[in-house]
Design a protein around this nucleic acid. Sequence first.
DNA 1: GGCCGGTGTCAAGGACACGTCAAGATCCGC
DNA 2: GCGGATCTTGACGTGTCCTTGACACCGGCC
Lengths: 228, 228
Amino acid sequence: MTPRVLVVDDDVALARALAINLRAHGYQVLVAHDGRQALSEAGRSDPAVVVLDLGLPDLDGIQVLQGIRGWSTMPVIVLSARSTSAEKVAALDAGADDYVTKPFGMEELLARVRAAVRRGRPATGVEQAAMVTEDFTVDLAARRVAAADGTPIRLTPTEWGVLEVLVRNVGKMVPQRQLLTEVWGPAYEGESHYLRVYLAQLRRKLEPDPAHPRHLITEAGMGYRFEQ
Amino acid sequence: MTPRVLVVDDDVALARALAINLRAHGYQVLVAHDGRQALSEAGRSDPAVVVLDLGLPDLDGIQVLQGIRGWSTMPVIVLSARSTSAEKVAALDAGADDYVTKPFGMEELLARVRAAVRRGRPATGVEQAAMVTEDFTVDLAARRVAAADGTPIRLTPTEWGVLEVLVRNVGKMVPQRQLLTEVWGPAYEGESHYLRVYLAQLRRKLEPDPAHPRHLITEAGMGYRFEQ
DNA sequence: GGCCGGTGTCAAGGACACGTCAAGATCCGC
DNA sequence: GCGGATCTTGACGTGTCCTTGACACCGGCC
């Protein structure tokens, strides 16, 4: 599947040059010459990357960017003749993935397009809001935990802090140091005893058999791991 | 949850300036001054973003980048004094997410860090960066090893440390001295007996026929090598 | 064959990390 | 200021892991 690139530039010559080079490197290229076209084309053809010149006749380039960001997280590489710091910051904070100052080398732009395509995107920005296991459910958004039968389980703030870090890293081993700094702060790196106390409490509240935990796993000498 | 940023720069003053600014903007900052530190820190603390200066004393910055890309898709922002097109292309194609030429404005860098953190890591929870062999799988990001049939294999911290170094250098011979210093510390350079003990344990846990290892290879008199 | 350096294997001890319980200390709402 | 919940700290039994030593093995070399 050849990736689609949407080139947005009112400079017809430059847009054509970009299109030719991108096609020569195996991309399928769509071109828009103003902001409206850009927005409609982005919505219609869902490109893998957008190359967006900020200087457009009808809309401000930032507005186009915001228009795209309203519904999509597709990578956008911004082109601009302006090289001031403020301009770059504004574009990047509006959601641009990259900022290239004109004049630029074609090879460089192609490399940045490759980088943008490569890192791709999960098309849907779905947030994993809840962690469901056989024995309980952790709702990260609502900050609530419930047993399998639905009865709520009360956690103290610190218990929740520990559980949250582990659930966010489900399947991954979380080093003790990371848990301590994220829950208690960097000054508590050495207090691994806290972890033992709180993991025990969490197990008593969550595990069907706290002596043989299935979800809150100890990796001796390293850290802990949450298993679904 | 404050995002972690790993700053890699041998220029102590610049690294400190970056760290101060990033901390002032609410990031948790880790600093490494050479390539080895950078790789081990990236593996140990799994930062949200890496800011990597290409000019390092021990390793080429590109090598560090490749070392990280061997097992992780974490965003990497490359800093460099070189502004030639070829340099940029090389770094971007090696897996960099962004390329910033020195000197740069702090505001711009902060904006690029924000952009990198924002587009975040779709990799969370998804199994994608792992060393897969016929007989077992080593997931460096999750710090987990599983047999071919999926049953998890328990490793002790030291066993894991040895395996991690070897896997990160897959195909390359790792000298005994390097293994000892990276796992046990520089004071243990002479304790090559440790290696024999731990390689034996790893083989017993990982190799189908521990007496005739296929993946954990001894290079007699020199070191060890991991083969996929 | 005997020697020797480097290697693989096994087992045991002691050090260390872990889980557990419970008693202070501290915080917070009332 | 009071009382309850929550966090910290200590002590202890248990289990795991690291270290260390003893010994067999293999290859090359004298």
